[in-house]
């Protein structure tokens, strides 16, 4: 008995430490971002409780035009992009799940070839350039409109819908569009919601396409701005000539550490908010979808 208890203790400790490494950074960033700017010098890597908590960092960030614009851009790209993803994936998955049309095999091969061969970064760049999409939101939104992997997952969900429902609807004189709206979408809802989450998270996290296709920082989403702030330490491009954000009435300078923490929290907040919902859908979702054909 004693040996088993020891194993349990070690096991629980290990797993707890692992979850701690995931939770800790968020608590740390949150604490740093809530610290009063005048106490910034007392922040260490071990900070988990803010000194003299205040929202002044968020107030300053949310009144900085470039950050506000970035938040707007992120939402714009995410909403429009995910809508495009979902619409295209639903109609394509419907055709793949129920259609028995001539040429379906060739069409499937047509979808799979791009998964096998990646032409690399330059031909993609040349395409966007030749389409005159450089420096537009479309350069970020249009690529990645359909993910074949998600398409196959959704097709699996569609195929799990009982065929009798379609037969009955057909007898009642329903056309395909009605069936998609009244049968497919309601019954495959968990699957649709699951892949919508995945598409939306991917859209929200996109930092690279804006970086290479959009030269105007005013059109960058939050992730690209964050990257320039942290990795490039390119503060002036983001925050204007002074490369500082002032706070409060006195116009003191906001320490970079606090700007960083605040921006990280802002850029993960939507993901943290939808995460619990995703977990719920996901458990039923992935299991059904992974029994693909």
């Amino acid at each position: 008995m004693k040996k088993i208890n020891l194993f349990t203790i070690i096991n629980v400790t290990l797993l707890f430490l692992f979850t701690l490494t995931i939770i800790y950074p968020f608590i740390h960033y949150l604490a740093v971002s809530l610290t009063d700017p005048s106490y910034a010098s007392q922040i260490t890597g071990l900070t988990v409780i803010p000194k003299k908590p205040t929202l002044s960092v968020y107030k300053s960030l949310l009144s900085t035009p470039s950050i506000l614009k970035a938040i707007f851009n992120s939402f714009f790209i995410t909403v429009l992009g995910t809508f495009l993803n979902i619409t295209l994936t639903i109609i394509t998955a419907y055709a793949l799940a129920y259609g028995k049309f001539p040429g379906k095999k060739i069409y499937t091969v047509f979808l799979i070839i791009p998964m096998l061969f990646n032409p690399g970064i330059i031909p993609n760049y040349m395409l966007i350039k030749n389409l005159h999409l450089l420096n537009t939101y479309w350069s970020v939104i249009l690529p990645g409109s359909i993910d074949v992997f998600y398409l196959m997952i959704l097709r699996g969900f569609f195929m799990a819908v009982p065929m009798e429902l379609y037969e009955a609807a057909r007898l009642d004189g329903a056309n395909h569009l009605t069936m998609i709206r009244k049968i497919t979408i309601p019954l495959a809802k968990p699957g649709i919601i699951t892949i919508s989450f995945f598409y939306a998270i991917r859209r929200w996290n996109e930092y690279f396409l804006p970086l290479i296709y959009i030269s105007d920082p005013n059109k960058w989403p939050l992730q690209t701005v964050l990257r320039q702030l942290l990795v490039e330490s390119d503060k002036s491009a983001i925050l204007g000539a002074q490369s500082v954000i002032s706070y409060g009435l006195g116009g003191g300078t906001l320490p970079f550490k606090l700007i960083e923490a605040g921006t990280v929290i802002l850029s993960v907040l939507p993901i943290l908010i939808i995460y619990p919902f995703l977990l719920r859908y996901f458990k039923e979702g992935m299991m059904v979808g992974s029994v693909k054909g």
């Binding site: 950074p25 998270i201 929200w204 996290n205 996109e206 930092y207 992730q223 964050l226 990257r227 942290l230 990795v231 960083e260 990280v264 850029s267 993960v268 993901i271 995460y275 995703l278």
Partner: peptide
């Protein structure tokens, strides 16, 4: 679910 930008920051 986090971007590599955020993970890199962490």
């Amino acid at each position: 679910l986090l971007s590599w930008v955020v993970i890199s920051a962490i």
